[in-house]
Design a protein around this nucleic acid. Structure first.
Lengths: 233, 233
DNA sequence: TTTAATTGTTAGGCTAGTCTAACTTTATTA
DNA sequence: TAATAAAGTTAGACTAGCCTAACAATTAAA
């Protein structure tokens, strides 16, 4: 049985080596800053995780997840995202609130509980932030996405997700958020000069330019994030 | 913010000094055996709880909860029983299963979460075992109850609750349980010789005599646990 | 009322997870 | 390629929560 702390290390490693930029390994310092602990602490802990066959690691080398570690970390992500979905859909929390609560709920271990929750929620594919939910085997399908900042002038796009690990951003959104309607909204790059209004999951939000890297979009017409020629036609 | 462990001490104290036999204080040994730790450990911890003004305590004396401690402990019980109700009603767990899962869930602190859950469940008065759920202020109305073993020969009674802290009993019940109908069933003391069949929350169960202290009942006619004269009329 | 049994306390030690400070290895750059 | 910067490790210390073993206080019984 993994401890609360061990699970957080594995979750952070999944975040850094699977979800983010598709690197497959990461250094001690990077992991330390992600977890908000000192590098010395990570050094110790990584040795422990290696003994448990959860990570690959050699002194002064890079850290990567073993298959066992990847699945264990993915299960934490699965639990996190399913609880977020529950809080959002059933208890009417905002997306700004769900992340923090799910940080605790994700450490409840029962497999039966989480599979029942999945069923209760009717097997959702994405969490409230638009991120894919890993299945019961720890598998996940990550769709291609581009950020709002990559959208060209005049291009119409549809918001499909926001980064769920930026509390700063999410709280900002919650504060100025205003519900307008139940489907997502198409927006225009022309509005982006300082503050801009976009829609996601029925919530009308105003974001400043510095947050445009936190918002994922696809083409409003073909729903693709790459290989889209709609604009040039 | 109280730790997982501190909360368990307070919950055990509520159990021992509020729910059970209405004693108002308890010794170090009793608390230690309830929590399955050594008396030495309790001695230390109780000093810490006293510093935090959660218990009244003098060296070699008895332990009792302060008002602050009572409310804190009651909130743990509230969370426990609301999660049990959620698991039973929404995720179709059996009452044998819910207790263990709620042992973890009860330590999620958010007040907002638990109040929303209460609302989602439509403010239930009793948990799946028939125990009253404390309100958001830590208040609880405990109805009079007698156990099955106190029922006289020929007396008709209605089952209203079972002890939720006897995993042994609950697992026994789950194994041989059989759903028959949706309301509770009236039973007769004559059947109690070795094995007997009673009904609770629509579940038909068979219990051996040694478990009759774990089952709470009221008179089937007047629904009272004491001051009932129905039988003598 | 003195002894024995029960109950509770203290001291010292263990583990997990964290820290700081000093040190070592690897990478970068002049 | 030698000096410097960055990254990583080790040693020693701290806290929470637990333990055992030895001791002290209280209660019960002879």
């Amino acid at each position: 049985m993994l401890s609360f702390t061990e699970e957080n290390y594995l979750k952070a490693l999944v975040q850094l080596t699977v979800f983010e930029e598709s690197y497959t390994e990461v250094g001690v310092n990077k992991l330390a800053s992600t977890l908000e602990v000192k590098p010395a602490t990570v050094s110790d802990m990584v040795r422990k995780l290696k003994e448990k066959l959860l990570v690959n690691y050699e002194k002064y080398g890079k850290i990567s997840l073993t298959e066992k570690g990847r699945v264990a970390g993915m299960m934490v992500v699965r639990r996190h995202r399913l609880w977020e979905t529950f809080l959002y859909k059933k208890l009417d929390f905002t997306w700004a609130e769900v992340h923090e609560l799910a940080e605790d709920l994700e450490h409840i271990h029962s497999k039966k509980l989480i599979d029942r929750l999945d069923q209760f929620l009717e097997f959702p594919e994405f969490d409230p932030h638009g991120d894919a939910i890993p299945n019961a085997d720890g598998e996940i399908i990550i769709p291609f996405r581009k950020t709002l900042s990559e959208v060209g002038k005049g291009e119409k796009c549809k918001v499909v997700a926001v980064k769920d690990n930026s509390t700063d951003f999410l709280q900002h959104v919650d504060k100025i958020g205003l519900k307008i309607r139940d489907d997502v909204t198409v927006i225009d790059r022309d509005d982006f000069d300082s503050l801009t209004t976009i829609g996601f999951n029925g919530v009308q939000i105003v974001v400043s330019l510095k947050f445009t890297d936190n918002i994922f979009v696809v083409c409003a017409q073909c729903l693709k994030a790459k290989d889209c020629n709609c604009h040039s036609l």
